[in-house]
């Protein structure tokens, strides 16, 4: 059984070892090749990194839950853009304008409601039709993006409100609002997944849906809640980001779903469901962001980043497969 513990450690710790390796590697490489005079990572750049990771990071946390549950959600990027548009556009509505700054929380509510609603639609379709979540949310990705373009054509939607910008850029101990929101989401969802009945059931359903049904778990409604959660988090991510930027381009959020899935998978969550962790995803998100910064630091062109991340993703999954295949044969007595 010591083997068990070791495997768990490898599964959960690998991503942090990888992050540590990156920190050392880019620091040393930067100095060695005299590509950069500055240190790779100091406190300020760490904090900035956390802020930059927030938009995809918040979504990736929701994606972790959905994937542990045995589903997937490809529509998060479009949901993100649509929630952003609803938030900024609603500020331009006459009654909202009349309210002045007190319209801001209302605009946030509109955005979050939009996200929950889109998630609810996904979840209900998955539950009631039994169609695979991949297909349902692929359709939703196209459909929701269509709504984005229907809203304002190719034009950006914008509304600049300095109170909102100030809020978005406010900081506590150097952590700006998006980073705080990200960390709060990590903490809350981590508690939900490790300590609550909902979390327990999410793992059970993802690992063996039939056994979960036989244990009397209401699988359909459970999955719907998770889709609502990821919709909410996609909208929350939009709220945190667009409050500061004030402008949504209709192409915003494209490929977010793939970046989120990449981070989740790097963090050790199984594509087939039943296994994974929120903390692992936090590591995955940071690792990706660190890689971007690091390659930049040693003077690699930005274009190479995607190539390197792609290679690392496949390498990680290959390693995972090797580790777990060995385990699987041992079990097959």
């Amino acid at each position: 059984m010591q083997n068990d513990t070791l495997k768990k450690l490898v599964n959960n710790g690998a991503i942090w070892a990888f992050i540590l390796f990156q920190l050392v590697f880019f620091e040393v490489a930067g100095r060695w090749w005299s590509l950069s005079d500055s240190a790779f990572m100091d406190l300020d750049s760490m904090l900035l990194l956390l802020k930059q990771s927030a938009p995809i990071g918040i979504i990736a946390i929701g994606m972790t839950v959905v994937m542990i549950n045995g589903n997937i959600d490809l529509s998060v990027g479009a949901t993100y853009a649509l929630a952003g548009i609803v938030m900024l556009d609603s500020m331009n509505w006459p009654f909202m304008e009349a309210m002045g700054d007190s319209a801001i929380p209302l605009a946030w509510l509109f955005a979050l409601f939009t996200g929950c609603l889109l998630g609810l639609i996904n979840g209900m379709i998955v539950w009631k039709t039994g169609v695979d979540a991949f297909i349902v949310t692929l359709g939703a990705m196209l459909g929701y993006r269509g709504l984005v373009f229907m809203y304002n054509g190719e034009n950006p939607t914008y509304h600049l409100n300095w109170t909102m910008v100030d809020f978005a850029e406010a900081d506590i101990l150097g952590l700006q609002t998006p980073a705080i929101v990200f960390l709060a989401v990590v903490l809350i969802v981590w508690l939900v997944m490790t300590r609550t009945v909902h979390g327990r059931n999410a793992y059970a359903i993802g690992d063996n849906r039939e056994a979960a049904v036989n244990a009397g778990i209401r699988v359909g409604p459970h999955m719907v809640w998770n889709f609502v959660l990821i919709g909410f988090l996609a909208a929350l991510s939009a709220v945190a980001f667009y409050s500061g930027s004030g402008s949504v381009n209709p192409n915003d959020g494209m490929l977010f779903e793939l970046w989120a899935i990449t981070a989740v998978v790097l963090g050790g969550t199984k594509l087939a469901g039943g296994r994974g962790s929120i903390i692992g995803t936090l590591g995955g998100v940071i690792a990706i962001q660190l890689l971007r910064r690091g390659l930049n630091h040693i003077g690699a062109q930005t274009e190479t980043v995607n190539l390197v991340i792609g290679i690392i993703l496949i390498a990680v999954l290959f390693l995972d497969r090797q580790l777990n295949r060995k385990g699987a044969e041992e079990l097959k007595v």
């Binding site: 793992y203 059970a204 690992d207 063996n208 039939e210 056994a211 039943g274 296994r275």
Partner: peptide
């Protein structure tokens, strides 16, 4: 294994 247990738990 298919109907009774969540093997990874």
């Amino acid at each position: 294994k298919e109907q009774g247990l969540v093997l990874g738990m």
